[in-house]
Amino acid sequence: MAETAHGGVRRTAFPIAGDLSEMRRRTREFLAPAAFDELREMNFVLAISEAANNVLDHAGTEGVVVLLCEADRVVAEIRDEAGLLTDADAGLTPPPVGSRRGYGLWLMREMCDAVEILHSGAGSTVRLTMTLP
């Protein structure tokens, strides 16, 4: 989907596919006008990539990334139709020491200013937010 702007909000969306490098490239292009410092941009792109990877690994359905740039923040919504992610508190604490899995949501919460996990009949959404400088 092409980037659009309405009421001062820029928006784009694209499907989650096996090539997450393309998703990361498109995300960085969308973020460029936001003028994040390098570390914040890298953290945000990594968090979005991790959420998209979780869709590929766990949902078993197609997913989509929706990016919104508002006046004071950038929001990424990573959506899937499976709806398997139902725990709004997932990732609030780190996984046990030595665990091989379970770091993704915890890292997203560490790297982003806000993380919300939403669930409805339409599926699951991980909403990641970074405030603008």
Rank of each mutant, 00 (worst) to 15 (best):
E62R: 15
N53L: 07
G121K: 14
D80G: 04
T125F: 06
A35P: 06
L39P: 00
I78T: 04
S120Q: 11
A35D: 13
G91N: 04
L56F: 05
A71M: 09
V66P: 03
L68V: 01
A35C: 09
W106C: 06
G104W: 07
A52F: 11
P33N: 05
L56T: 08
P33D: 05
C69S: 10
E77A: 03
A59N: 11
A32I: 01
T93F: 01
E70D: 08
I117F: 03
V97Q: 13
N53E: 13
T93P: 04
R73P: 07
L85G: 03
P96F: 14
P95Q: 07
C69I: 02
V45L: 03
I78L: 06
V97C: 04
R79W: 07
M108I: 09
S120H: 12
E62H: 15
M111R: 01
A52G: 06
E81Q: 14
A52I: 01
D37Y: 13
R101W: 15
A88T: 06
Y103A: 03
V45Y: 11
G91C: 05
L107F: 10
R79C: 06
L92K: 13
E70Y: 15
C112S: 12
E77F: 03
R79M: 07
P95M: 05
T125K: 09
S49T: 08
T125V: 15
G102V: 07
G121N: 14
V97D: 11
L84H: 12
L105E: 05
T93A: 14
L92S: 12
G91R: 04
T93L: 12
E38S: 11
G123R: 05
L92Q: 13
P95Y: 13
L84F: 12
N53G: 10
A82T: 05
R109M: 03
D72S: 11
G91F: 07
D37S: 07
G121A: 15
L107A: 11
W106F: 15
A82Y: 12
A51G: 09
D57T: 09
N43G: 01
Y103N: 02
R109D: 02
M108D: 11
G102E: 11
L84D: 03
R73I: 05
V55E: 03
L68D: 06
L84G: 12
N53F: 14
G123C: 03
E38H: 11
E50S: 05
G121M: 11
A114V: 00
C112I: 00
I78A: 02
M42P: 00
I78K: 04
L39C: 00
L67K: 10
E62P: 10
W106N: 05
V97N: 07
S124W: 10
L56C: 06
H58Y: 15
N54Q: 08
N54F: 08
D72L: 00
D57C: 10
L46H: 14
R109I: 00
D89H: 08
L105P: 03
G102Q: 13
G91Y: 08
S124K: 05
F44E: 01
R79D: 02
R101A: 09
L39N: 00
V45F: 08
E77V: 00
S49P: 01
L46A: 11
D72G: 09
D80H: 06
V65A: 04
E62G: 15
